[in-house]
Amino acid sequence: MRRLLLYALLAGTALLFLAPLYVMLVTSLKPLAQIRAGAIFALPDAPSLAAWAKAWSGACVGASCGGLEPYYANSALIAAPSVALSVLIGAVNGYALTKWRFRGAELFFAALLLGVFVPFQTILIPMARTLAALGLFGSLWGLILVHIVYGLPVTTLLFRNFYLGVPDDIVRAARLDGAGFFAAFRYVILPLSLPMLAVAAILQFTGIWNDFLFGVVFSSPGSAPVTVALNNIAGSNFGAKEYNVDMAAALLTALPTLFVYVLSGRYFVRGLGAGAVRG
């Protein structure tokens, strides 16, 4: 009896958590006529992918009506180099901080920690001025730079905590064998780091793909990421609202990160603990 109640609670909560996804999915498959009838939980009478097609290649983002596709490409072009570089530099940083400890390393780390949590409003105005001065404002390069810069604190934190658990003697032995800083990293540390590389890459990819603040502030119509495009589609009040297209666009935007989550749940959860600092 107690067990039954337990499972009932779990299942009830699960339904609440799944309901928005279900509503998005059925809405995206319905024609507008059925949507206007006002039964959001009802299954589509005649399921159709027309709204998905329109969201992908025909919905209007501002003045251009080419759908989400170009913005999807923008997000991918922003995410790939930003994830790769912020993770790689973070790994080297964590390695340098733990295995080549030097005076001031801990102070440096403490100073960097603030950047993991800081509300970015603090730096938006100077960053906009700086990007403009560099001629990068409104370009993909500008967004890539911003994502790398503000990704470094958290990737450094992840790898520092991970390498604290790797015995110092491994690196020391490599150095006695004549390996330098980068050789010891490349041949001794990096092969041990695969799980943490996955954790950091997933965390960074999720964060960068889902970013809205930097996208909305630093992009131009041509370089906007997919989240900004989605808000443009779903938030516009011109003409008749096409809720099915909005929901299809929202699902398309969510797909890459959901896909990564389903494929790699364990690593995803580990990255969440990044905020739990531990000295």
Partner: peptide, 12 residues
């Protein structure tokens, strides 16, 4: 199931 919303952006 309880964690998947975390993978989705706030915009979605």
């Amino acid at each position: 199931i309880y964690l998947y919303p975390l993978a989705i952006s706030f915009v979605v």
